[in-house]
Design a protein around this nucleic acid. Structure first.
Lengths: 378, 378
DNA sequence: CTGAAAGCGCTTACAG
DNA sequence: CTGAAAGCGCTTACAG
């Protein structure tokens, strides 16, 4: 008996890979016929197709991704470049959740997401150029949109499938997906109004972000519309600015009964100041955050916040990206898509408001569900 | 004059792509020479190499990734499969930070990370098989390691580069990277002992996780070693279990003066129970968490926690993955690597302890830095 | 509906 | 040190 196990033909893995030529030989057809059969294209009879597929399965054939790509097939990859340090990305709850949502939809469509961290906008644009040049991606997702973003004209010029996350109004001729901040503002204001608040302050983040301007505009507009007394206080960015702005607001001759913060971090800083000044929440001042997170949920009392679900946002972006790629390839939009949107059309994510004890006194004492269960049982 | 702009040759992009054949023609050499030149391999004189590289740059040549892969070059891609729903991943701070760290190192080495979300362990193993079968990845990173993990033997059988994140002792013959939980436990216990605590409780998570067992073992061992009074309370998983266990511990005839929790969520639930029972932190009971997060940092008082830096963890995993791939390809380990570790060797991440007011009364009133600054200035 | 061929853009031996 | 050729595994026209 000669050794029949262990002696692998050569190199890594077990033996030579199975190709369509092997299948063709076994099936008594040409490799072109195999290609048509496995790609579900017309040109072979149903009988031979079945036979070919059977053999392919039997031989455990896997298509060579490289060969397909070289022959001109889509590479089934979406790219995303991040021009922020890993430490910053890692500290943000949004990033992980957004990526998870993207992945879910892309994975299901057998697409993969390719990411790259770079250290400048120039490097980012260069990466787009190279990715498309190398045919490594079928399309790219652009994030962290800014005012007058140089990446927009660069991508427009490349004339390749690209989706902008953010907006509105600053994505040029590119398709985009963004959260409706006007609607978010409306949800907050109407919620507070329904609880009887008529003096409301908004502690706003830096105007560098597009959404800040959008919120400012809607906030002012709703104040006039509803005839309420609205105060806007610019806080710059971060917790320190928010703390300062909150103190400022409390010094007013007739302080507001509710304060709306632009982020979870800002809301927490504001709540800290209120606690210091012995102002009860929500009895003295109600608190709302535009951004939900473990911080707002874990606070005592839990803070009412806009829940835009970063996971859902990622899913929507992936869905739209796939449509853009399909349309560019001249293929009909994927099934499940409602109609076939024009390439440059935007899609809007509708925000929701998670009402918690920081605005609604009836919810005081109710911690987040999991905790509540534990305490009941103890 | 005929139109020389606007009339793009055909298809998407501008014109036919530049290939090494074009460069060869211009340089008066064969395409093989170009290949050697651009890959920095011997076989061409320095003069011709320079000339070739100059022309390549001038023509803005980009290598075809697909062609390279088809011809046998590495695909420069690392794969990671996640068998958890996007919602769960998105809710975890660890995921985003780990991915950011991975990305940083892989991007710098011109590798990309390919992820896929699946819904079962079988699908995960199948994905590995297919990825390697299609030559879509050069190696894979395995996460969420469990006891008797079926993915380990499956990957061992595939005999392809794979790195296990987690351990020790459960990664079979595969190389791994993990955080040193024994050291983490030692840091916590020694910190508490130095503050004079001699009755310490540990509220432990589910024993399904390898690290739980490791912590249990070290905790018990240190108790004997230092002659302290140690109590272990199993809490199962999550906040409710932790709340129950904390209540249990407080009912003891001689309650501990410090409680160590297995996660940030558990620590928060425990702190909530202490607050309910009017037990001051850290005056009545000191609190420590094995997991740092915005929850522990944002709590009042901020909670002392093990900081293992998920970003750093990701970086270490990527670094090790690249070494494993290089070694498998017969290449020397990347520069910067200390020595050339054997394939199956593990690497250990050293944890740190972030000391905060939940254990050290001297730090009471000190919120996290950013906040503190804001308050000083207001 | 099926066959034979060319081509995608590289890399890798193998001669000179 | 350089040239000519084969081959990686597919897809896509183009004839029969």
């Amino acid at each position: 008996m000669t050794s029949t196990t262990g002696d692998q033909p050569r190199g890594t893995g077990r033996g030579k890979r199975v190709t369509i030529a092997d299948i063709a030989r076994r099936a008594g057809v040409t490799s072109a016929a195999v290609s048509l059969a496995v790609n579900g294209r017309p040109g072979v009879s149903d009988a031979t197709r079945e036979r070919i597929l059977g053999i392919a399965r039997e031989l455990q054939w896997e298509p060579s991704h490289a060969a397909r790509a070289l022959a001109g097939a889509p590479v089934k990859t979406v790219g995303m470049v991040l021009a922020r340090p890993a430490e910053v990305l890692g500290a943000e709850a949004f990033f992980g959740a957004f990526v998870a949502g993207l992945q879910e939809v892309l994975s299901a469509a057998d697409y993969s997401l390719q990411m790259k961290i770079v250290d400048s906008t120039e490097a980012e644009i260069d990466t787009y150029r190279r990715w498309f040049g190398q045919r490594r991606v079928d399309g790219v997702v652009l994030v962290d949109l800014q005012t007058d973003d140089p990446r927009i004209p660069a991508l427009e010029q490349l004339a390749q499938p690209a989706l902008v996350v953010g907006g509105p109004g600053h994505h040029g001729s590119l398709p985009s997906v963004y959260v409706d901040d006007a609607e978010a503002t409306r949800l907050i204001v109407e919620h507070l109004a329904s609880l009887g608040h008529s003096r409301i302050a908004r502690v706003a983040g830096t105007a560098e972000f597009l959404h800040t301007m959008q919120r400012n505009r809607t906030f002012t507009q709703l104040g006039e519309e509803l005839g309420l007394d609205f105060v806007q206080q610019d806080a710059g960015y971060g917790a320190s600015g928010a703390a300062r702005a909150t103190a400022e607001v409390l010094r007013m001759p007739e302080p507001p009964t509710a304060i709306v913060f632009d982020s979870d971090e800002m809301a927490l800083a504001g709540a800290y100041v209120l606690r210091e000044r012995q102002v009860p929440i929500p009895g003295g001042v109600a608190v709302v955050s535009y951004e939900d997170s473990p911080l707002t949920r874990g606070h005592h009392p839990p803070i009412t916040a806009i829940r835009r679900s970063a996971v859902e946002y990622g899913r929507a972006a992936a869905q739209r990206m796939l449509e853009v790629i399909d349309t560019a390839a001249g293929r009909p939009a994927a099934p499940g898509a409602i109609g076939t949107p024009a390439q440059a059309e935007s899609r809007v994510i509708e925000p929701q408001l998670a009402v918690r004890a920081s605005t609604d006194p009836a919810l005081l004492g109710v911690a987040h569900t999991d905790l509540a269960v534990g305490l009941d049982a103890s």
